[in-house]
Design a protein around this nucleic acid. Sequence first.
DNA 1: CGGAGTAGCGCC
DNA 2: TGGCGCTACTCCG
Length: 647
Amino acid sequence: MTFPTFIAVDVETTLNGNEDVGLAHPMHPDNRAVYVGISDSSGKAHAYETFHTPGLAEIAIGGYTPYATYCGHNFSFDMLYLFRLSHKFKHVIQKAKIWDTQLAEYILTGQRSKFSSLDELATKYDYPLKEDKIKQYFQAGLGSEKIPPEELIPYLKQDVEVTWKIARDQYKIAVEQGQLTLIETQMEAMQATTEMMYNGLHINKATLDAYTIEVVNEFVECKLNLEELVKDYVEDINSPKQWSQFFFGGKKKIKVKEEVGVYKNGNTKYKLVEKMVAVKPFVDFKPDPDKVSAKTGQVSVDDSVLNDMLDHTFNVEAKNIAKSLLKYRELSKQLSTYVQGLSKHLIDGFIHGKLNHTATVTGRLSSTNPNLQNISNNPIKKIFISRWVGGLIVEVDFNQLEVVALAHVTKDKQLIADISAGVDIHSALYEAMFGRKPTKEERKPFKARTFQLIYGAGAKAIAKQAGCPLEEAQKFVDVFYKRYPLVGAWHQDFAKLVESSSKYLRDKEGLLEKFKTCVHTTPTGRKFVFTEYYNDSSWSPKMYNFSPTEMKNYPIQGLATGDIVPLMLGVIYRKLIDRVDVKMLNTIHDSVLFDVQAESIGDFILDIKEIFQNTHKYYEETFKHPLALKLNAGVSYGENWFEMIEV
DNA sequence: CGGAGTAGCGCC
DNA sequence: TGGCGCTACTCCG
């Protein structure tokens, strides 16, 4: 087998980051690479001390063949340090191919290996483990600069050499399993997300400060109001448990003073005793039985229950309290998660969130520290602005990406035709159900049913979510399957395929497992793992069964946001690599965020739209089979991430 | 006092 | 029984 020219890299760093944000944060100004370990093309490691000999590592890495594939474990971490260390590193590595052993392992195992450690892989591939002695320095919070070099250097070299060997082993398996192409596209996507993490999102401090004051004021007012309303009933308004007891009753623990005797001086002797007392419900309203937790028996007091209660009770006081609580929850979320949560990640005016490639079962990316994929769509988004004076934030979204993925996977002719012709499938389905076109207000909630169905929901789940009769939800499912028959056929056939190709695997001790497992490989090389669940419901005679929703959804979500989007992230990254007027900032499943200089905006919008519209070409070129449909994209831009104008 | 589990809620 | 991550509370050791 011919291998790429692998060059393994590993950095040892200080550990000065903020505890909240994660120690060793690669973008924290107090952190730096202390040692860089680099292998040659045969896997032999060399170590360089960055402080005393800053030029050495640079020369080493720059002096190797331009055809090298740089590899590391959790490599974006090392890359960020290297980028900060020298522009030469940044230039060389960004132009090259990379191989992250953590990401490769994730793909090779059908997303079962998540955030693996180098030691886990060393165990699996049969290479030496890290020395305990060194691990203890790190666990004690000591950065690499505090570890004696004669101990650290051999450790660093071993990590580099082990990484190099694992990369080669993985490469071989990738070829054997037909996953090399997918892995290569994922590595390109990692180049893109590493660039995004390096760039960070620029924050408008003045807007953040003003918004903070606004939210704090609203929050305090709302909090005082709510506390006044329930001062006799609920001690902690943040406690769902207490709210549940208040609204719907239950058992409450209280502490009571109990006489346990008399002191010698004649005073009564007391002891605090915990007692359970029954609490009467405050409202005469019983929520849906499935709003009761199976595990704790606690009645939910979430948003849907409170709104349901508002519609069904005549208790004015309870209504006021519920309304106030809903408002309080909203403001509390804003303040804690977004205003305060985002603020603590500010570094020199930027937020450098982390994009994770090995976090999900479907192959989607995830985002942490902070999560930049769930910023609420309200004025908090105004704080995200361009890094350039007059610059613009640009967001490009795939149009109905998951519907396209569904059409591609199921090959349903009508669905393909509808999307290709620009037919609004939600309107079409509505008309098929009710005999007329929906109004704008009718269309919006109706649209959610289609997504539910794609996510794998059956009639029951749709009815519950939509708050409509079961018959209506069943009719929707029937209408959907009638218009798009191959979707229904695929749902059935795929479930059968999973069932029939599943086996009892063996665990680490070689014993047969209790649940059957199916490992399914898609045409892109993506593997999905399905495992049986214990089935305690009466509708099926089987003890164990596969989750219908997982089977319906994984291949769709995986293709759309696990295969196609990362492929395009890599493509876009390569197209933009030499441009200084555009920066990639973030990706949110079916969209990509950019920072663009003002004078480039017109051309950039045209360019990026064209790239998105050519997704089918890149897909076919890469995976050697056609995508059933062309994709389209919507572009919006603005001075901040909230006030965006659609092009 | 810290870790695990739960509830709730933000996004696609 | 679609996929995530963050904050707060609760329980337990």
